[in-house]
């Protein structure tokens, strides 16, 4: 296979990583909650897409209309029952507690998914699965093109929402100064609840894409791993940076495959993770603290 073909797959994988990471980045950046369960939620959402396709023949991109609000409600439930009470903690304690609680959620969701849908891999096979666009020698799967476009639209859309709409800006204001936001008349309780729900709802985008590849109960934590690498690469609080970090990781992994073989993909990812942590611990795409 040609070099350019590897890079193409790298870009597609990277876009998917970014879609998984974006919800985690939002929730961590805005609320200081470390939600390790984000990848597992994407896994659950992916099963949602699979089931809608199997039983009702709804395309994963169309069933987003159902999985997005569904995951939003899951997020609202999670926030009200588990994370809201952590607001009284100091930031470090909040980070640690949310990490522990969400790790518990990972185990619960993985077990639940195994009981409900077995440990076997599942996938959605649509009419366009396996079809490719040929650009000279280069072959680009249509699902890959959809993944890239979705990642761009979702991430830049979220960035626009936070920076240029009144509600988005009020979420951002709460993240900068919780008490002062109250003094401005912002309903902080409702704003954080919606922001958390939104962060969890974003996992539905990743889920739709994942369902077109393969999904199994154990992939959740793998996706979270990739997401964490992206957050370190991008820097906490960076939204657009997540996309670039995703592309960077995807491409570097692809280069690894091209140069040293497929068994070292994980190692290559961790290597740039460590290099960035050593040389630029604030992340590659953060100038000061900012969204």
């Amino acid at each position: 296979m040609e070099f350019a073909q590897y890079i193409t797959y790298g870009v597609i994988n990277g876009s998917l990583y970014a879609l998984v990471a974006i919800g985690l980045a939002l929730i961590m950046g805005i609320m200081g909650i470390f939600n390790i369960a984000q990848g597992s939620l994407a896994m659950i959402a992916a099963y949602g897409s699979v089931l809608f396709f199997q039983h009702m023949k709804i395309d994963p991109f169309v069933s987003l209309a159902l999985t997005l609000p569904g995951m939003f409600l899951v997020g609202v439930f999670m926030y009200l029952t588990m994370f809201m009470s952590m607001n009284k903690f100091d930031p470090g304690q909040k980070l640690r507690n949310s990490m522990l609680v969400s790790f518990g959620l990972v185990l619960i969701m993985e077990t639940l998914a195994t009981i409900l849908w077995t440990a076997n891999e599942r996938t959605v096979t649509t009419a366009y699965s396996g079809t490719v666009m040929a650009l000279g020698d280069l072959r680009i799967p249509y699902t890959g093109i959809a993944t890239i476009i979705l990642a761009i639209v979702v991430i830049f859309g979220l960035h626009f929402f936070l920076k240029h709409t009144t509600f988005g800006k009020s979420i951002w204001a709460v993240s900068q100064d919780h008490d002062c936001a109250m003094l401005m008349g912002i309903n902080v309780k409702r704003t954080t609840l919606v922001a958390f729900g939104l962060g969890i709802a974003l996992s539905a985008f990743a889920g739709a894409v994942v369902s077109l590849h393969t999904v199994s109960p154990a992939v959740g934590i793998d996706w979270t791993n990739k997401a964490l690498i992206l957050i370190v690469l991008a820097g906490v609080g960076s939204i657009n940076g997540i996309l670039f970090a995703g592309l960077l990781l995807g491409i570097v992994e692809a280069l690894g495959v091209y140069l040293v073989g497929v068994h070292y993909t994980g190692v290559v990812g961790l290597l740039i993770f460590i290099i960035v942590l050593m040389l630029r611990p604030q992340g590659l795409f953060v100038r000061k603290a900012g969204v």
Binding site: K169, A173, D179, C180, A181, L183, G185, K288, A289
Partner: peptide
């Protein structure tokens, strides 16, 4: 309305956006 001690501006936001946050009700 209250002007808090130490001003407590939304530092990462522009002047205009800070004003907008004051008019949220």
């Amino acid at each position: 309305a209250m002007v808090p001690e130490g001003r407590r501006l939304f530092r990462e936001m522009t002047v205009m956006d800070n004003l907008e946050m004051g008019a949220i009700t």
